[in-house]
Nucleic acid binder design. Structure first.
Length: 571
RNA sequence: CGGGGUGUAGCGCAGUCUGGUAGCGCGUCUGCCUUGGGCGCAGAAGGCCGUGGGUUCAAAUCCCGCCGCCCCGACCA
């Protein structure tokens, strides 16, 4: 490929609306161009990267025994009503109508459609197991799309679905995908860590996310270096702390005028935040529930939802708070709330807590010297692990302290169980002629997000540093003197030889000054740069430099050795 | 959806407070010059100042509505 025949625009300055490096670089290097919030055009360079990541995904899915299919983006509403997700997906799902007013979903994922499809084909255990996959555009009406491809309304996803006869067999399918994912991310030049995760809206019992560690990541992950435990903060558990508060005297009401937040009240009273019990009223499927946690901690709503076995859970509105507790937010507490039948649950760190400070259920008052056992109606079985893990919390597996890092979720594997196969009655006949529901797994990779994660993990102040396997072109040949016949012939012959042997190469044949060309090459981040110029040829050769090396490491080789030297630099 | 910011040439921005015929840098085009890390000189093209209304002799600028984009939040009492 000749640069002058390509369609490449690079920008000298960062786009004004980009925040994180990978987003800025994708735009500056001419990989993509914004259409509107959360919507992108992939330009030729970006498309080449996207295609290379897809190729790796396909090869590894195929190697793992998965079979490629493609399903419609436009999906009849009936499928989604069968699973109940037509309602539960809410405004996250784009919807459309045809001329006859039939409802459709723009596929945000495809469990329903694939289950219906497999059900129609599989009758016998003899046909199982089977794993199918597609690489298809997905649509999600994100609350707030951001950071370029990190969270967009339309994105390319690889989604795979396994169907098995039994849970044990499904575990094998899950592990095959798990291993394939490790290979995929590794081949993309990414360090991706599998972490335990909650299953969210998809449902199911057990899952792992694959995360690329990056400050710009949207998820928090708890790591234990000692035993290797890694879990999304939504899921991460800590060892139950023991509470050895000494006995305290009688409760005492104190005025705390105007102080609402824990920080304000603790400042007002001159007491550490951890001495407080933070009490929140949640609306749980329409009924109020009070949740108590230590003052310096935050409620983990995912854990809370599971513990309460709730369908829908959100913070209560002002009315509900007032009716349940007798006070407005800021003065709520577990001691004698207005609604005497109010269920109160508490974080397990508060089991046996004494001498704590709580809201008085009366505006602008708190109570100190509270003994939760003595002074509240919290039932022993209503203490549970309900908070978000913090740095330094003790690992539930091994007892050592954990650390928190941030990650970009690039993949997710689920053991789904029979949630969808039950809903669709997707059954097969066993060898003793019984009907049995298939056991399912599902497995996603954000292909377009992975492209950006690669950049986020591999760039420097000059631009992107592509791993060779996914670079838009593996080699750029800088023709420094396009008007010089000898130089141009040398550059073009080298291009032809490399292309013949399967190396992706672009020749920068623009009539630009060398500085411009070098800046662009660094910005776009071609793994290997080859310089062919009149001066160099006279001096005996061409110059080869890897993007991840600095100038002092470049090599000068005779023209006849160039091809071999370039290939060696690519490894 | 709530809060904040922002919208002026392809890109990055100034001008808005204090109303008076729209500017800078980059990029683009022409010519000369230069040629190993975003050269230099000269010239040129390119803007319904997001959009609709209002105030005014006069609006990028003031007022009202709408829209787009970005950030934070959308539960932490």
């Amino acid at each position: 490929m000749k640069w002058t025949k390509s369609f490449i625009q690079t920008l000298r300055e960062d786009p004004g609306d980009a925040e994180i490096d990978s987003h800025k670089l994708m735009v500056r290097a001419g990989l993509m161009k914004k259409v509107a919030g959360g919507l992108w055009t992939y330009l030729p360079l970006g498309m080449r990267v996207l295609n290379k990541v897809q190729r790796i995904v396909r090869e590894e899915m195929d190697r793992a025994g998965a079979l490629e299919i493609v399903m419609p983006i436009l999906q009849p509403a009936e499928l989604w009503k069968t699973s109940g997700r037509w309602e539960t997906m809410g405004p996250n799902m784009f919807r459309a109508k045809d001329r006859a007013s039939h409802d459709y979903a723009l596929s945000p994922t495809a469990e329903e459609m694939v289950t219906e499809m497999v059900k129609g084909i599989v009758n016998s255990y003899r046909q199982l197991p089977v794993t199918v996959y597609q690489i298809q555009w997905k649509f999600r009406d994100e609350i707030r799309p951001r950071f370029g491809l990190m969270r967009s309304k339309e994105f390319l996803m690889k989604d795979a679905y396994s169907f098995d006869t039994t849970l044990e067999a499904a575990d094998k399918s899950y592990m095959a995908m798990f291993e394939a994912y490790k290979r995929i991310f590794s081949r993309c030049g990414l360090k991706a860590y599998p972490v335990e995760a909650d299953t969210g809206d998809i449902g199911g019992k057990f899952s792992h996310e694959f995360h690329v560690l990056a400050e710009a990541g949207e998820d928090g992950i708890a790591f234990c270096d000692a035993c290797g435990y890694a879990a999304n903060l939504e899921k991460a558990e800590r060892k139950a702390p023991s509470c050895d508060d000494p006995a305290c005297g009688a409760m005492e009401v104190i005025a705390t005028p105007g102080a609402k937040t824990i920080a304000e009240v603790s400042g007002f009273m001159g007491v550490a935040g951890s001495a407080f019990v933070k009490s929140l009223i949640y609306n749980v499927d329409g009924r109020p529930v009070m949740v108590c946690v230590e003052g310096h901690r935050e409620v983990n709503e995912v854990k809370l939802k599971h513990f309460l076995n709730a369908k829908k859970l959100e913070l209560a509105d002002y009315d509900m708070v007032l009716r349940a507790s007798g006070a407005n937010a800021g003065s709520v507490g577990p001691v004698k709330p207005a609604d005497a039948s109010l269920r109160i649950v508490a974080d397990f760190a508060l089991r046996g807590a004494k001498g704590r400070i709580v809201g008085a259920n009366k505006d602008d008052y708190h109570i100190k010297n509270v003994d939760l056992d003595r002074d509240t109606s919290i039932k022993p079985e209503d203490y549970a692990d309900l908070t978000i893990v913090q740095s330094g919390d003790i690992c539930a597996k091994c007892g050592k302290p954990m650390i928190i890092k941030r990650g970009i979720e690039v993949g997710h594997v689920f053991k789904l169980g029979t949630k969808y196969t039950d809903a669709f009655k997707a059954a097969y006949k066993t060898d003793d002629l019984k009907e049995q529901v298939m056991v399912m797994g599902c497995y996603g990779i954000g292909v377009s997000r992975t492209v950006q994660a690669i950049i986020e993990q591999s760039h420097d102040g000059n631009g992107i540093i592509w791993p060779a396997a996914v670079a838009p072109y593996q080699v750029v040949i800088e023709n420094l003197d396009p008007d010089d016949a000898e130089v141009t012939r040398t550059a073009d012959e080298l291009e032809a030889r490399l292309e013949t042997s399967g190396v992706d190469v672009i020749v920068d044949d623009r009539a630009e000054r060398p500085g411009v060309k070098f800046k662009d090459a660094d910005l776009i981040g071609f793994p290997v740069r080859v310089v062919v110029g009149a001066k160099g040829l006279k001096a005996g050769g061409i110059e080869i430099k890897r993007r991840d090396e600095d100038k002092s490491q470049l090599k000068i080789v005779p023209v006849v050795e160039a091809e071999a030297a370039i290939k060696a630099a690519l490894v």
